[in-house]
Simulated scan of single mutants.
Amino acid sequence: MFDSLISFVREQYRTNEFIPLHAPIFKGNERDYVVETIESTFVSSVGAFVDRFERDMSAYTGSPKAIATVNGTAALHASLLLAGVKAGELVITQPLTFVATCNAIAYCGAEPVFIDVDRHTLGLSPVALDEWLHEYANLDADGLCRLKDSGKVVRACLPMHTFGHPVEIDQLLAVGKRWGLIIVEDAAESLGSLYKGQHTGTFGQLGTLSFNGNKIITTGGGGMILTGEELGVKAKHLTTTAKLPHPYEYVHDEVGYNYRLPNLNAALGCAQLEQLEGFITLKRSLAARYESELQGSELQFFQEPKDCRSNYWLNAVVCENRDRRDALLKATNDQGVMTRPIWQLMNHLPKYATCLRGDLSNATWLEARIVNLPSSVTPELSA
């Protein structure tokens, strides 16, 4: 029943073999840089490519500082600690996200509060956020946001740019300013995405990226913290075991984390970053082809929000209902074309089922309908 879509996908990738959802492509200097790292013997957390990757990412995103980490979850955890999140406090986020977003909150001993998303961005709704805060929170004499009933501190807000599509981050910043909330952006999926010409992850006090093997560029594993000069220095210190500089002594002045990205991974990242704009061009071309192919069908292609440039990390369609979603998932996967549903809502997972939440109508509606289609970059797409 979805044969035409399956045929279309196979035409794009020019293969009758299994088609993954998103696979990396290595066509640049990856091999040369990795070999150079091995020959230097600096394959661990100290080396020239770590420094270069941080500088290159700072220049690309426009962030004053970029601090490489071992993965995106580590970047999130460290960023929340730098934002001042403490045990027993609350962090507002969206239920429609990957579990790492919530896990990073839990690592701090804090709890997530789930606020609904907007259907046109798939990300945290600034209107729903403001309405929930007006109903359930107030500002104390010190300007801290607290719940009216329990007095718990609401410390931060953690929106995610879902599938590379930017949230309405300027409006979220405005709400955060009114309520004394620190904004930490989960930009794990949105490297190369722009909101009104500015790179995602650079609006809040802190932002994070991921370079997992399924992201638009990869370091094998890896992440990055984007922030300003002062917090950047603190982030580097915190993620390198809080070790103070000394010619030979081991002096650590606080509890630190061994979240450093190895030089070997950074070498891969430098080569991948050199190709990023080309990857985005090809992925946006694929997205336009999907949109054209699906016009007039029962599947609604999800388009980038207004005033944004999305990297279209994962292409998505909205099905009529859950039954049609499940039918699409079965038909494609049975024929070797990998598709996936969106994540289960975080409030449906046992660990987070009892967390505070607002009305989640949009997130629930999307959970039952979204399907991701193959979105890999391949050289054939440029033909």
Rank of each mutant, 00 (worst) to 15 (best):
V251K: 14
A174F: 11
K148A: 06
K152N: 12
P245G: 05
Y257L: 15
A174M: 12
T227I: 05
G201R: 00
T200N: 09
Q198D: 10
K236Y: 14
A187Q: 06
W132Q: 07
T208C: 11
H199I: 03
K148H: 11
N258G: 13
I182L: 11
Y136H: 15
L181G: 03
D170A: 13
K215G: 06
V184Y: 04
D170T: 15
T202N: 06
C145T: 10
F203W: 10
H165Q: 10
N214V: 12
L139F: 09
L244A: 09
H134C: 13
L158Q: 02
G180W: 08
T162F: 15
M224Y: 05
T219N: 11
K215L: 09
V167S: 11
I169R: 00
W179N: 06
E185C: 10
C145Y: 07
D253N: 07
L173G: 10
T227C: 15
V153W: 03
S210Q: 06
I183S: 04
H246F: 07
A174D: 14
I216D: 03
V167N: 07
L268V: 09
D130K: 10
A137P: 00
L209M: 12
G143I: 08
E168D: 15
L181N: 02
E249V: 11
A141N: 11
G192P: 00
L181A: 04
H246L: 07
Y250L: 15
E189C: 05
L244M: 12
L226T: 04
L129E: 01
L133T: 02
D149Y: 10
K152S: 13
T208W: 01
L173C: 11
N263T: 10
H252F: 15
V154R: 01
Y248G: 14
V255H: 08
K196I: 10
E230K: 15
S210L: 06
T202Y: 03
A242I: 04
G151L: 08
T162I: 15
E230M: 08
G222T: 06
G180Q: 09
C157G: 09
E189I: 00
T239C: 13
D149P: 06
G207Q: 07
G220Y: 02
T241H: 12
L158P: 04
V255I: 14
A235Y: 00
A174K: 14
R155G: 04
R178L: 08
M224N: 08
G180T: 04
L264Q: 05
T227Y: 07
L147W: 09
